[in-house]
Structures are given as C-alpha cells and as structure tokens.
C-alpha cells in the first residue's frame, strides 16, 4: 500500500533522514519506534507531503506521491494526525470535524462518518459545541484522530498519539487505534512508547539517528535483545 524507497531528507544542511525504506501492506499496523530526534516525525511529515525528500521515492497505492503537496495527498486517501495534535483550538469540536471532511462532497457519507466518529469517541459528542482549546489533552488527541477519520483515509499516519497522556488514557487511545485498524484502515504509527506500539503492531521498524537499524515483525522485535535493552526497559 505504501512503499517508501530510500528517501533522504534534509533540514537545511542537516541530513535528518538517511536512506530510509518502509513497506506498509494493506490492513496492517506498522510502527516506527525510536528515541527522540531519531527522525520518526520527519519520516511521517515527508510521507504526508509536508516535507520533500531530496532523493528517493514514495509510492502510495502504486501512485508516485514524491513531492506532491500535502493537501493533494489527503485527497488520495492518506491522512496524518500530527504530533502534538494540532487541533484548531479556536474552533469548536464540530468545526474541527467538518474541516476533516474538507475535501469531501458526499453529504450523506460525511454525516454517516460523523456518527461513526461520535460512536468511537463519545466524549467528542458531549463536547460537540465546545471550543477545542478547552478540551483536555486526551480529548484533543481523540479530536485529532476523529478529524483525520473524517477524510475517510485508507492509510492513517499517527504521530505520537500517546504523548503527554496519562497511562489509562494511553490504553484507551491504543484500543481505539486497534479498532480503527479492525474496521479496515491501515495504520502507520510513530511512537516513543515502544512497548504499547509493539503490542498492537504487525510490523515494526527501529529508527536511530535517521537510519533504520532493525526491522521485522513486532513479535521479533519484542524478543530482540537490543530492542528490549534500548526501548523496553529490560
């Protein structure tokens, strides 16, 4: 579904991503783990079109999307929930969700998906008319995810959904990620919380200073000594 082939990304003179390749197949949850500054977010931002790779190609459903602008990529069915949520905190929950469906014109489909989102996140329904800036961190994460789902993506990129959340909420969010995946959306998940991420993922990549150092099924990585030492506190 998604094929990232040997991309190199620069921030000015800084070589942030050094030849990364990632494969995501239809229906999977794939996770990218690694410590702070390893290049996980940059990789996602490059896939979603917010940044452009200097070399290498990115293919989504066999279409070359390298260098295509972010707003067009959304229309192709690939949507990113950015790190730090980035909800429109001056707008209401409802308006945020409507913006998620910005490119869609099928009114019936939109209201159906809105219902789905409210079913997944009942708390958003309660706070429908509340300004998003007044939501708690967990609720904002739910809103950011709900907003992304409103574009009806086939591939959802999640950047650090657990960041800054209480353990109980993290569990809830991860359960919802699994649910979203089970209803047919492929997921590429970036996480610092490697333990949680490996628990729900099918496949995983370990990123260190812009390079992939390990790749395999989530099981394999969970059992790998290096991963246990570096990321699972074992």
């Amino acid at each position: 579904m998604l094929k990232v082939d040997n991309i190199n990304v620069f921030y000015g003179a800084i070589h942030a991503i050094k030849g990364i390749s990632i494969d995501v197949s239809d229906g999977e949850i794939v996770t990218l783990i690694g410590s702070n500054g390893a290049g996980k977010s940059t990789t996602l931002r490059t896939i979603s079109g917010l940044m452009k790779p200097k070399t290498g190609t990115i293919k989504f459903e066999d279409k070359d999307i390298t260098g295509v602008s972010a707003h067009k990529i959304v229309g192709m069915g690939l949507c990113q929930v950015p790190e730090g949520r980035h909800v429109f905190s001056n707008m209401t929950v409802m308006e945020n969700l409507q913006l998620g469906a910005y490119l869609r014109k099928d009114k019936a489909g939109i209201s159906q998906d809105l219902e789905e989102v409210f079913k997944k996140f009942p708390r958003l329904l309660e706070r429908k008319l509340q300004v998003a800036g007044t939501l708690s961190g967990g609720e904002q994460q739910m809103l950011a995810m709900g907003r992304a789902l409103m574009s009806r993506p086939r591939l959802l990129l999640l950047d650090e959904p657990s960041m800054g959340l209480a353990p109980l909420l993290v569990k809830e969010i991860f359960n919802i990620i699994k649910e979203i995946n089970e209803s047919g959306t492929t997921i590429l998940l970036v996480e610092q919380n490697a333990k949680m991420a490996l628990d729900i993922a099918d496949k995983a990549y370990v990123l260190e200073t812009g390079r992939i150092t390990l790749a395999g099924t989530a099981k394999e990585l969970q059992n790998s000594e290096a991963v246990q030492k570096a990321y699972l506190g074992g």
Partner: peptide
C-alpha cells in the same frame, strides 16, 4: 490558525 494542520485537512 495553523497552516500545516490545514494542509493535512486537504
């Protein structure tokens, strides 16, 4: 409010 997030909405 947030140009990057807006792009991600399409």
């Amino acid at each position: 409010f947030d140009a990057d997030a807006a792009q991600l909405m399409g």
